[in-house]
Simulated assay, not measured.
Amino acid sequence: MFSDKPTLTGRRVTLRPVGPEHADGLLALVSDPEVRRLTGSHAAFEPEACRRWCATRADQSDRLDLAIEAGGEYVGEVVLNDLDPANLSCNLRIALRVPGKGYGSEAIELTLGHAFRTTPLHRVSLEVYAYNERARHVYKKLGFVEEGRLRDALRWDGEWHDAVVMSVLRPHWQARSETLT
């Protein structure tokens, strides 16, 4: 479903298919302590593993990995993964090194526009940790609806945290898009 690996251009960001040239940016992203906390990532990543990962993204037809660039610099990634073709659904995840500049909102808008205009997807979901209020606010603003909670889904620094499940459905995204144009 994601064999097309487009470059998507907005006002502030450009989304490019992840390739080997993004390995250093990805390594910096996944090594950033605040990004790790916000994404709940306990894993450590090695440079060679990041290079191999980036080099194989173009071959994956069940996911879409896009580097987020602003001013020609790598600032994060947005991904559609966990594709469920039978139910026309997938997951969205995003990670940014430079939050609060609108890059994430624009990247998600571009990604959802591509997903709902060029594929038969009906549902895009995500999980966000309850303590990430900024991200939850952005997701709601973009049309995601809270569906529930996964209680104590993450243990971080000895404390338990809930994950909030959210999704946006094609008909709601289309109605929202029509009111914005």
Score class of each variant (00 low, 15 high):
M1Q: 02
F2R: 07
S3C: 03
K5C: 06
P6G: 09
T9H: 01
T9W: 01
G10C: 15
R12I: 08
R12P: 07
V13N: 05
V13C: 07
T14S: 12
R16G: 11
G19A: 15
P20S: 14
E21Y: 09
H22K: 06
A23N: 13
A23R: 11
A23M: 13
A23L: 13
D24C: 04
D24F: 06
L26M: 14
S31N: 02
S31A: 04
E34T: 08
E34P: 02
E34M: 09
V35Q: 12
R36V: 00
G40Y: 07
A49S: 13
R51F: 05
R52F: 12
R52G: 12
R52A: 15
C54A: 15
R57C: 08
A58P: 05
D59M: 14
D59P: 11
Q60N: 15
S61W: 03
D62C: 03
R63G: 09
L64A: 13
D65C: 09
L66Q: 08
L66W: 06
L66G: 02
A67K: 14
I68A: 01
E69S: 09
A70V: 03
G71R: 05
E73M: 11
Y74P: 07
Y74A: 03
G76F: 04
E77W: 02
E77T: 13
V78S: 00
V79N: 02
V79L: 00
N81V: 01
D82R: 14
D82G: 10
D82W: 12
D84V: 05
P85E: 01
P85G: 04
A86L: 15
N87M: 11
N87Q: 10
S89I: 10
S89W: 13
C90Y: 09
C90D: 05
L92K: 02
R93C: 01
L96Q: 06
L96P: 03
L96A: 07
R97P: 01
P99Y: 00
K101C: 14
G102V: 07
G102A: 11
Y103R: 14
Y103E: 13
Y103F: 15
G104E: 02
E106T: 02
A107D: 04
I108D: 01
I108L: 07
E109H: 06
L112K: 08
G113V: 15
H114T: 11
F116D: 09
R117E: 12
T118W: 06
T118A: 11
P120W: 00
L121A: 05
L121S: 06
H122E: 11
R123S: 08
L126F: 03
Y129Q: 06
E133H: 14
E133K: 14
R134S: 12
A135P: 00
A135V: 04
R136E: 08
H137C: 06
V138C: 05
K140D: 04
K140E: 06
L142V: 07
L142D: 08
G143R: 04
F144Q: 02
V145G: 11
R149A: 10
L150I: 10
L154D: 14
D157F: 10
D157E: 14
E159P: 00
E159A: 12
W160R: 03
D162R: 06
V164M: 02
V164G: 01
V164E: 01
M166Q: 00
S167D: 08
L169I: 10
L169Q: 12
R170Q: 09
R170G: 07
P171N: 04
P171L: 04
W173H: 03
Q174K: 07
Q174H: 03
A175T: 12
R176Y: 02
R176G: 06
R176W: 04
R176L: 09
S177K: 02
